[in-house]
Measured scan of single mutants.
Amino acid sequence: PKDQAKKEIEKALRNGDEEKAKRLAKKYGISDDDWKELKKRVS
């Protein structure tokens, strides 16, 4: 599910692991808009 994916990506971003977050986003098909939203929430 997308919500689970977003949680994992957000966690990776919080850990400062943007490479992992990007890989997860690609793997789960997270859209650019969702990606920006996640980045905003974390920063």
Rank of each mutant, 00 (worst) to 15 (best):
P1E: 13
P1M: 12
P1N: 13
P1F: 12
P1K: 11
P1A: 12
P1R: 11
P1C: 15
K2I: 14
K2T: 14
K2P: 09
K2Y: 15
D3H: 11
D3E: 12
Q4H: 11
A5S: 05
K6F: 15
K6H: 13
K6A: 09
K7V: 11
K7E: 11
E8F: 06
E8P: 01
E8Y: 07
E8L: 12
E8V: 06
I9C: 04
I9P: 00
I9H: 00
I9L: 03
I9R: 00
I9F: 01
E10S: 05
E10L: 15
K11C: 08
K11Y: 09
K11S: 11
K11N: 13
K11V: 11
A12H: 08
A12D: 02
A12K: 02
A12V: 05
A12C: 08
A12F: 08
A12N: 02
A12P: 00
L13I: 04
L13F: 04
L13T: 01
L13Y: 02
L13D: 00
L13W: 02
L13V: 02
R14C: 11
R14M: 08
R14W: 06
R14K: 07
R14Q: 05
N15V: 09
N15S: 13
N15M: 14
N15P: 00
G16E: 03
G16S: 03
G16K: 05
G16D: 04
G16R: 05
G16H: 07
D17T: 02
D17K: 05
D17A: 04
E18C: 11
E18S: 05
E18R: 04
E18I: 12
E18P: 05
E18Y: 12
E19S: 08
K20P: 02
K20N: 08
K20A: 12
A21S: 04
A21P: 00
A21W: 01
A21R: 00
A21Y: 01
K22H: 08
K22Y: 12
K22D: 03
K22F: 09
K22G: 04
R23Y: 14
R23G: 07
R23H: 09
R23S: 10
L24R: 01
L24I: 06
L24G: 00
L24F: 03
L24E: 01
L24T: 02
L24M: 05
A25S: 04
A25F: 03
A25E: 00
A25I: 02
A25G: 03
K26N: 08
K26T: 09
K26S: 08
K26G: 05
K26V: 11
K26A: 10
K27D: 06
K27W: 11
K27M: 13
K27L: 14
K27E: 10
Y28P: 00
Y28I: 03
Y28D: 01
Y28Q: 02
G29N: 11
G29I: 03
G29W: 03
G29K: 10
G29H: 08
G29T: 04
I30H: 01
I30E: 00
I30G: 00
I30N: 00
I30T: 02
I30S: 01
I30K: 00
I30Q: 01
I30A: 01
S31L: 04
S31Y: 02
S31V: 03
S31K: 03
S31F: 02
S31A: 04
D32I: 07
D32M: 07
D33S: 09
D33E: 14
D33P: 04
D33W: 05
D33I: 06
D34I: 06
D34M: 06
D34G: 03
D34Q: 07
D34W: 06
W35A: 02
W35M: 11
W35S: 01
W35R: 01
K36H: 12
K36I: 13
K36M: 13
K36F: 13
K36G: 05
K36P: 02
E37I: 06
E37W: 06
E37K: 08
L38M: 10
L38K: 01
L38N: 01
L38Y: 03
L38P: 01
L38W: 03
K39A: 06
K39D: 02
K39C: 06
K39G: 02
K39Y: 08
K39N: 05
K40A: 13
K40T: 10
K40V: 07
K40I: 09
R41T: 10
R41G: 09
V42G: 03
V42Y: 09
V42H: 05
V42C: 09
V42N: 05
V42E: 03
V42Q: 04
S43A: 14
S43W: 14
S43F: 15
S43E: 15
S43R: 10
S43Q: 15
S43H: 13
